[in-house]
Design a protein around this nucleic acid. Structure first.
Lengths: 152, 152
DNA sequence: ATAAAACCTCAACCTGAGTTGAGGTAAAGC
DNA sequence: GCTTTACCTCAACTCAGGTTGAGGTTTTAT
């Protein structure tokens, strides 16, 4: 087990993030620290990797909550191995594949739908690109035919 | 000029959004309304299209501020034409193209970089995918060689 | 005529991902 | 020993994109 001898300042500088972000990640349960005699945080070098992974995941659009859940699948009795980390990243990769495909569909429909004015919530392909991934939780409302076919 | 006779409730229902969102968009200068004798909002039918475009743009990741700027390029002396709207969407399409390419790069580097542990802010390809598009405004900090090459 | 539904404004609240600042303690440099 | 720098906690603030609620008015339906 590597010794915990990195200070917040060093970790923050090394990772290119603010100290406040480290406090915040700790408070959110994403990283851990021990304390020295004077109550100052001391980190094991492993934390650097965790933070890198946090930043990488955020960059691809994973939320801190999701990152936390993913981290919970890591072994807590030993330092994670290459395989552990790769396993983690695979899920995010699948998610990214889905998101890329989704954006491509949107991209291809955007100009057509905005141009043609067909932007109806119920029938426009832009709003209905088979989205398992839809951000819209509740989804658009169904209207009666009379209203829906009203001219814009 | 079409008459302004849509109430908030009708517009909201038709668009599948809350009335509060309509108030909010108006306050942000994205849509307009006139008022009837009793101070209630009345919308021209054109507002439906604007709202659809707002929702479409949001879906592809455009912020309300950016949408507002885009709307400012629309003619204010006449109802926008198909060409006006298509012009609008072209910029968003280009932006989407860039973002898709960016995500693809991230996707392809993710597993490798997380697995190999090379996640250094200064040298890992995940953090440096030629990103004109990087969300990180300030970017990672440069460290002296001694620190950067320290073993993790 | 009256009740219900729809509308109004304004202020406060929500989530996510942190940042900022006040007031105080610890460690490091000279 | 003293000063500077680094660190601590806790609460409040930021931004986007709205939502919620209170207290009051208008419109619509019966």
């Amino acid at each position: 087990m590597a010794e915990a001898n990195w200070s917040v300042g060093k970790v923050a500088k090394r990772c290119g993030i603010n100290i406040s972000a480290l406090h915040f990640y700790e408070q959110q349960g994403l990283i851990q620290s021990s304390r020295n005699a004077g109550n100052q945080r001391r980190y094991k070098p492993e934390v650097l990797r965790r933070i890198s992974v946090i930043k990488a995941a955020q960059k691809v659009g994973v939320s801190l909550d999701e990152i936390k859940i993913a981290f919970e699948s890591l072994p807590n009795n030993r330092t994670p191995t290459v395989e552990d980390w790769q396993q983690l990243s695979k899920n995010w990769q699948r998610m990214l594949d889905g998101r890329i495909a989704y954006l491509q569909t949107l991209r291809n429909n955007l100009s057509g739908c905005i141009g043609c004015g067909c932007l109806s919530m119920t029938s426009c392909p832009l709003y209905n690109p088979d989205d398992q991934l839809a951000e819209l939780g509740s989804g658009p409302v169904l209207l009666d035919q009379a209203e829906e076919t009203a001219r814009l």
